[in-house]
Amino acid sequence: MKLTLKVWRQKNSDDKGKIETYNVDNISEHMSFLEMMDVLNEQLIAEGKEPVAFDHDCREGICGMCSMFINGEPHGPGKGITTCQLHMRSFNDGDTIYIEPFRSRGFPVIKDLIVDRSAFDRIQQAGGYISINTSGNTIDANATPIPKDDADKAFDAATCIGCGACVATCKNSSAMLFISAKVSQLALLPQGKVEAKERVLAMVEQMDKEGFGNCSNTGACEVECPKGISLENIARLNREFLDASITSDK
């Protein structure tokens, strides 16, 4: 198929940036979206131009590196997928596709489609862990049985890939879904309960510092999340936060 691509080009964080138009031809429906971008880049290189910079690594939907706002949606059309899992069969011959970076105060653009998501790391550093040494001198793994249901729920929350689609789609640029995933995972496990209060307070505080907005329960994040992280986690985060704010001595 033949496509018209409207791609955001921005040389660096100081540059204002603008949309450029490119045409690509001979795109197979079996290609992934990023393979289509590879074709575009090969074409640009052949013309002696600079290729479009975009983040990617695993190309199988697990590293969370790829981003891109495609036709107004983070990770493009289709549910439960990342950009690297999007295939060209989702588009039609002759389509015009708009490709932009994830946009949020918390995610400044570095170049073209690449944004800086290090705020997510800093939020995790604020408390997204269990304070246990790595010496290996812990109790036997089976000494504490965990109800399968709790373990499964903790797992579901833990599958967040830290991609930032939830933030990019939210009109308030809220990072609540992302944070709630970590808070829930650890709050659901006996090992994580000990520090649950300090954790939730610290992570939310850091979120505010990073300039992410508040949650107004529109639920757009859940819809766009490639891993189906559920809003239930935000509800749990709110409960944990409220409980911690009332009872914590901090």
């Binding site: 109790i139 049985p145 109800p147």
Partner: peptide, 22 residues
Amino acid sequence: ANIIDQCVAQGVPFAREYGGLL
């Protein structure tokens, strides 16, 4: 064997059986 103990203590949600064991 120690790796599994360590990871569980860190909150790694391994698959479990209905009895709650790994």
